[in-house]
């Protein structure tokens, strides 16, 4: 009896430990090696005292955390991070929505346009950022030349060096590199909405704007949700855009938490990997909380049922 039930269970697909390990092993090794081990090292590092050379001098207790949380630049950096993430994510989703609507319609050359939208996504962030650094350049940049020759501005603007423009210039690049992924996500979402719903709405006499608001948007909700959450994380963690565009500016006036963390470890007078690791732990908590709050606000579970 026992033997039979066992065979039955195996036939239903329950594997032995060895078999399970064989299948799960590679993934588990990856997870432990790439996620868990670095995370543990990060936390361990944040409790150590380090010399400027990188040599561990001893235990720091929680002093790295208190030093980080009381550093005078932190409020500004957190403010920058809020503006950067907020502006890029909101603009990306709005532009993505419009672009997705456009791309899901049939028109001549659609394939061409779809390819063109993919390009910024396919090129490396470092390359796009370098390109924009050249475009924004005070003396030789295309942007200033264009605006000057159109007489929109009278003298060149220091897009990256003038504090009034730096963040806006970086946000524009952030949106540019985030829109393609978001637009495609939303195109997929649009394609998943059945055509008969629209037909019914039209028969009932709904205006295009009504249809968009009452049908398209609610049915796109899961796609928008995913788009926002993934963008929140990507944009928050985005290093190259800010590092490169803000590269020649002094101080921490335009840094986000991510570039600030790097500067703490390797560029600032502190030059302290322990302090930087504490910043890293702080960053992970911030993004977890941000995503958690967002999901709470939009009633994630309800959205799933809808």
């Amino acid at each position: 009896m026992g033997g039979r039930s066992r065979r039955q269970r195996r036939a239903r697909g329950t594997a032995s430990v060895a078999e399970a390990l064989l299948w799960l092993g590679p993934a588990l090794v990856l997870i432990v090696g790439i996620v868990l081990y670095p995370a543990i090292t990060l936390v361990a590092t944040s409790f150590g005292t380090y010399s400027i050379t990188g040599l561990r001098k001893g235990d720091a207790g929680t002093s790295n955390y208190t030093n980080f949380l009381t550093s005078p630049d932190l409020p500004r950096v957190i403010g920058n991070t809020g503006i950067w993430v907020g502006a890029v994510v909101v603009l990306t989703v709005l532009i993505g929505l419009a672009l997705a609507q456009f791309l899901s319609k049939e028109f001549v050359g659609r394939r061409f346009v779809r390819w063109a939208v993919i390009v910024p996504w396919a090129s490396a962030l470092v390359i796009s950022s370098q390109l924009f650094k050249l475009i924004y350049d005070y003396y030789h940049g295309v942007l200033n030349q264009l605006l000057l020759s159109l007489h929109i501005i009278q003298k060149p603007i220091d897009w990256l060096g003038d504090n009034h423009f730096t963040m806006a210039s970086m946000v524009a690049v952030g949106v540019f590199v985030s829109v393609p992924f978001t637009a495609y996500l939303l195109v997929a979402g649009l394609n998943a909405i059945p055509a008969d719903v629209y037909e019914a709405a039209r028969i009932d006499g709904g205006s295009p704007w009504q249809i968009y608001r009452r049908i398209t948007l609610p049915l796109l909700r899961p796609a928008i949700l995913i788009g926002v959450v993934l963008n929140l994380i990507y944009v928050f963690n985005s290093f190259p855009v800010i590092w490169i565009l803000n590269g020649s500016n002094p101080g921490f006036g335009n840094d986000t938490l991510i570039t600030y963390m790097y500067k703490l470890a390797f560029r600032s007078a502190q030059h302290d990997v322990g302090l930087s690791a504490a910043a890293g732990v702080f960053n992970v908590l911030i993004i977890l909380i941000a995503v958690g709050v967002y999901l709470r606000l939009v009633n994630w579970r309800e959205g799933k049922e809808a």
């Binding site: 430990v17 399970a20 390990l21 799960l24 092993g25 588990l28 090794v29 997870i31 432990v32 090696g33 868990l36 081990y37």
Partner: peptide, 18 residues
């Protein structure tokens, strides 16, 4: 028990790697 074994094995593997 199985899960325990899997996690242990994975942990050992990763520690060796590290």
């Amino acid at each position: 028990v199985r899960w325990g074994a899997i996690v242990a094995a994975a942990a050992i593997t990763s520690m060796t790697l590290a």
